[in-house]
């Protein structure tokens, strides 16, 4: 309980929940990439996940818990930090703080909106125009759902913008996790920062490749 009130405790909860979601994002991206194998790849992958049954729900609840913890403390910390430094300087100059570190709340809220949309779009499949169907083997036809969705440039753009926000969020967030847990020192920190940015970039590229290649007509039925 002490952790919930402590400034360091909450920071640690932020970082662990955030990192849990990063791990999910990595696995999710690798799974998604099975789309490049064709309908057989991604539809089989989806079916495989489905077959896990209750485990999927356990996983979803854990992710939801991470999200809620991350969101709640993220907003609380931001409000407190704004209160601790309400007036800026006439000249605003930062030496070490980055665009990504200063915009965490905005990229974070963007991602929240995106996650809601994304779940409605591809998980609940309730957004208008979404293509629901089964493939020849009776599996959910995820491939067709995705490719038809991304033929719409507007939809693809939403996904690209969201992934840009993810990139910014994680290029600060990943290295921040190591600092917050103290798994670094002054010698390793620059390397960790680089690695964090690299992972963020791989996620950006991996996720964006799907809508972009569909839109560009490289990935088609």
């Amino acid at each position: 309980m002490q952790m919930l009130n402590s400034t360091v405790g909450r920071k640690i909860l932020m970082s662990i929940s955030g990192q849990g979601m990063v791990l999910f994002a990595i696995v999710h991206m690798m799974g998604n990439s099975s789309i490049f194998v064709g309908p057989n790849g991604i539809n089989a992958y989806a079916q495989h996940l489905h077959d896990l049954g209750p485990l999927v729900w356990v996983f979803r609840l854990v992710m939801l818990a991470f999200l809620l913890v991350h969101l709640t403390f993220g907003i609380m910390l931001t409000l407190e930090n704004n209160a601790a430094n309400p007036t800026g300087y006439a000249v605003n100059k930062k030496i070490k703080a980055t665009f990504s570190s200063e915009t965490m709340i905005w990229t974070g809220l963007t991602l929240l909106a995106f996650i809601i949309y994304h779940i409605l779009h591809f998980t609940a499949r309730v957004t208008p125009g979404v293509v629901k169907g089964v493939d020849a083997l009776g599996r959910y036809d995820v491939f067709t759902m995705v490719t038809s969705a991304f033929h719409n440039a507007g939809t693809a753009l939403i996904y690209v913008v969201a992934m840009a926000a993810l990139f910014l969020h994680l290029s600060h967030g990943i290295q921040s996790f190591f600092q917050t847990l103290g798994w670094n020192n002054d010698k390793t920190q620059p390397g960790i920062t680089m690695a964090g940015k690299a992972v963020s970039f791989v996620l950006l590229a991996g996720y964006v490749l799907i809508p972009v290649s569909i839109l560009a007509g490289i990935l088609t039925k």
């Binding site: 402590s6 070490k96 703080a97 965490m104």
Partner: peptide, 19 residues
């Protein structure tokens, strides 16, 4: 760290601007 919070200082979010 408790005193830091009670005094009205903000939370550290690893901007490293302090250094």
């Amino acid at each position: 760290t408790e005193a830091l919070k009670d005094c009205g200082f903000g939370n550290c979010t690893n901007h490293y601007e302090c250094q």
